[in-house]
Design a protein around this nucleic acid. Structure first.
Lengths: 119, 119
DNA sequence: TGAATCCACAACCACATGGTTGTTAATTCG
DNA sequence: CGAATTAACAACCATGTGGTTGTGGATTCA
């Protein structure tokens, strides 16, 4: 699977996003990360494995404990991807209507050209 | 499932992102959307259903054809979410090291305080 | 009207995902 | 040393996902 798909798949679980939010305030051990959730440590470790495969976090052993830290790159990848669509949500509703109308007119023009080309 | 999770789950498939990219240049029918892929029309329709459940697209019937259009709101939701993490990827690597070092030091300060509190 | 086109619905299948429990290795502490 | 802590590994299970094929309804066109 491509990198962006892996990243988005890792991010689509609320437990994992919550873990990332915790890590945004600094590294944490597995137990610390698991504490807020009503699930087993093993389940949280599975989530951590998913986040690590997506390179959203990295490990750093210290004795018995295993600390996790954020890795920034995939976040930027997501931001860059969604940025392409900014014009859609930033235009006012009126301007969006204009945009869609414009696109629709281009569309029917193309259709006419196709018909013309067939004749 | 919450709205953001549904959106990210819809976005984590490359076929669906490709469909959205096509729709960014204007509305399209199911056949038009299915054409670039080496999969059945029914599979593409399933992907469209996922995108529609996430409110990333909407339908508009015209005779036999069923056109799809982009809906901007969920894109903004994703952009707003990832924006929280901007400071992590925008800081230079040196500054990031500083940041992590800083967080780490805060952490060990907390630890010391905990030990102090126990005494 | 009859044929062709567009597309949705349903059933089926292989595989991934998110949870569980049981266990064990490594490390720290008394 | 022996006990407790931390966290990983493995097996298992229910459910969801992404594909398939078969089918049929609505619409258009000759």
């Amino acid at each position: 699977m491509d990198s962006l798909s892996t990243t988005l798949a890792a991010l689509c679980d609320p437990t994992r996003r919550s873990i990332l939010a915790r890590l945004a305030s600094g590294p944490a051990s597995v137990n610390e990360l698991a504490a807020p959730f009503s699930m087993s440590q093993q389940s949280v470790s599975k989530h951590l494995a998913v986040l690590e495969k997506a390179r959203l976090i990295e490990q750093q052993r210290e004795g018995r404990q295993n600390f996790r830290t954020l890795r920034p790159a995939p976040f930027k990848e997501v931001a860059d991807w969604v940025e392409q669509y900014r014009r859609f949500w930033e235009d006012s509703f009126d301007r969006l209507d204009d945009l869609l109308l414009e696109l629709k007119q281009e569309r029917s023009k193309e259709k006419k050209n196709v018909r013309k080309a067939r004749k």
